[in-house]
């Protein structure tokens, strides 16, 4: 929801980043305010996922220019764990499997680490069990989820639900969902979207990184941004996603030729 005079959570200005000497992000500007849902769309290779990883602090990417302000913090000065503790959450496109660690053990460790940082009480295994089971209902997850190893042998849908479960537990100020819809059938997509909708409120914000408009039928964005060649080249409302769905991305390139020329 767009709220008048709502505080800014994220302010990205002129962000540039490279990997192995190749520049992927070529000057991104984005402002996200409390309560808002932003969708970032674009073709493969446009830099959407890189942007998500740079926000979360992935060390493979080198930030070569620009700034990221997250509430009162300079995000670029913080390692990934401190970004997480400050309230930034990235739902991974490909969640990592950790055989040998029970999901419940991992979830509690993450939860307690973040809680401690926020000056709140840790939960013991029994308390946590009650708490996590309540949250699992949001995502219609079976209890045996807790005892299995983290993401090991999970289906694509189960992995994505596990990501959103972590989002529900950690209560971030800003969530970035990287291609959360990929690999989901329509039923799983509805469950995941429903979970996200119940977590979002006026005090947090969400960035959805996605290829397809499909997800946006269920999580309705306030803003839609189109990324191309490492830059946001167009911003509109939710109707822009529908237009992209029918017309593709080519017409934007045609319209934006001057902008492409600037980057050269």
């Amino acid at each position: 929801m767009i709220i008048a005079n709502s505080p800014t959570i994220l302010s990205v200005q002129g962000l540039r980043a490279s990997i192995n000497g190749t520049e992927i992000l070529k000057g991104i500007d984005l402002t996200v305010r409390s309560g808002e849902i932003h969708a970032i769309m674009g073709l493969n290779g446009s830099g959407k996922s890189t942007f998500a990883k740079v926000l979360a602090g992935h060390s493979a990417y080198e930030v070569t220019g620009g700034s990221i302000q997250f509430e009162d913090k300079n995000l670029l000065e913080l390692p990934p764990e401190e970004r997480a503790r400050a309230g930034l959450f990235l739902a991974f496109q490909y969640p990592i499997e950790i055989p040998g660690v029970a999901n419940t053990q991992f979830l509690r460790l993450a939860y307690n680490t973040v809680q401690t940082q926020r000056g709140k009480e840790e939960l013991d295994p029994l308390e946590f069990d009650d708490f996590v089971r309540e949250k699992m209902k949001l995502l219609e997850m079976k209890p045996d989820f807790l005892d299995r190893s983290v993401n090991e042998g999970f289906s694509g849908g189960e992995k994505k639900r596990n990501e959103i479960l972590q989002m529900a537990l950690l209560e971030p100020r800003l969530s970035i969902l990287d291609e959360t819809d990929s690999g989901l059938d329509i039923d799983a997509l509805k469950i995941v979207a429903n979970g996200v909708n119940r977590i979002t409120n006026k005090d947090n914000a969400t960035i959805l990184v996605t290829h397809y408009q499909r997800l946006l039928d269920y999580i309705v964005p306030d803003f839609v941004h189109v990324m191309q060649a490492g830059r946001i080249v167009m911003t509109g409302g939710k109707e822009l996603a529908l237009e992209l769905e029918t017309r593709g991305y080519d017409w934007i390139t045609a319209n934006k030729q001057p902008a492409a020329g600037v980057s050269a």
């Binding site: 979360a56 602090g57 992935h58 060390s59 390692p79 990934p80 764990e81 970004r83 997480a84 503790r85 959450f89 990235l90 991974f92 969640p95 990592i96 950790i98 055989p99 040998g100 660690v101 991992f106 460790l109 993450a110 680490t113 973040v114 940082q117 190893s149 972590q166 950690l170």
Partner: peptide, 20 residues
Amino acid sequence: FYLRSRGLSETAARNLLTYA
């Protein structure tokens, strides 16, 4: 990176993965 993005320190992440 996955574990650090969930708030674990680098040492805690390494220890957990070694344990696992």
